[in-house]
Design a protein around this nucleic acid. Sequence first.
DNA 1: GGGAAATACTTAACATGTTAAATGAATGCG
DNA 2: CGCATTCATTTAACATGTTAAGTATTTCCC
Lengths: 172, 172
Amino acid sequence: MTKRPADPASGNAPAARQVPMRDFSRSLPMSLLRAREAVMRQFRPNLREHGLTEQQWRILRALAAIEAAEVTELARTAFLLGPSLSRILRDLEARNLIERKTAKTDQRRSMVSISREGLKLMASVAPSSEAIYAEITQRFGARKLAELQEMLGELEQSLAGLGAGNAAGAEE
Amino acid sequence: MTKRPADPASGNAPAARQVPMRDFSRSLPMSLLRAREAVMRQFRPNLREHGLTEQQWRILRALAAIEAAEVTELARTAFLLGPSLSRILRDLEARNLIERKTAKTDQRRSMVSISREGLKLMASVAPSSEAIYAEITQRFGARKLAELQEMLGELEQSLAGLGAGNAAGAEE
DNA sequence: GGGAAATACTTAACATGTTAAATGAATGCG
DNA sequence: CGCATTCATTTAACATGTTAAGTATTTCCC
């Protein structure tokens, strides 16, 4: 065996380490992904017990805070893409957790609202959910949590209107 | 605070607002989701131009930093679940971006490594990617970015070993 | 040494993310 | 009025997230 520590391509193993980049485990997207996963891992079992996914729960919560909403508005509020929302609403309607009716003035729009049954389901999920959130807040620290969310908001702001198709003077 | 000023259930619209919860647009999961999306939105177009998804890119990056890795190890590094990784590796192998061979000592394990072609692809993607990251860093501020990542790490730490099937003292 | 249990990975099944295209309804404008 | 354009929503197609089950090996241990 010839000793060639610096050239991994000497064997049959394909060469690696040839594209210098940041340690990717410390990249911002990764940090955000891991943090979010750590948080959601706490909530998912409870939601699952009630037959809800994270996204379905987001929609119910968004609807519970208002009378009714158009699909597009709901997508913005629940931070879901149109196609995802469309599918989920179909399922939630089949389960009688929401109700829809097309708007009178514009047949294209459909007004979505949470049903009585949906509210009942929410009432059964909310307590554990709030308890979990409280536990997280306590563990991490309420002040730090507020600070973190402040920074996340600032990050979002500082990237608003970057890329995404157009800045000042973008040509397509 | 026992005052209930508004009862929206006066019309025919299904009653809402009956399940008191935090304003969900300000919940931690939402903040994290929005922040991450704001960041990833910057990278996706570039990756897409090269026919890569975010996850495929994560895998290539993880592999470029090492000689070879077992699938399980790679899943941990790239923060992907086994089934997702399994599918992606199948596709990346079909595109000749990675190579696999089963380990000699244990037929169950398969060693994955990046191919020469994979390295070439990385080299063509990395510059724009780094440039975008630099732009983000500049906009948000390098110091603040480091601070944010520090907090995200702490959040992850403070939730490690919560829920997930075992409380204090549950040693499997 | 042989079978139960553990391990590494893959498949399966369903839900969502993501982009493009389709559908149906309103609007603008000649 | 007629018709191209815009708009709101859905469908389609493909990729990943998520949990459960399956498959092939290996290890444990009597």
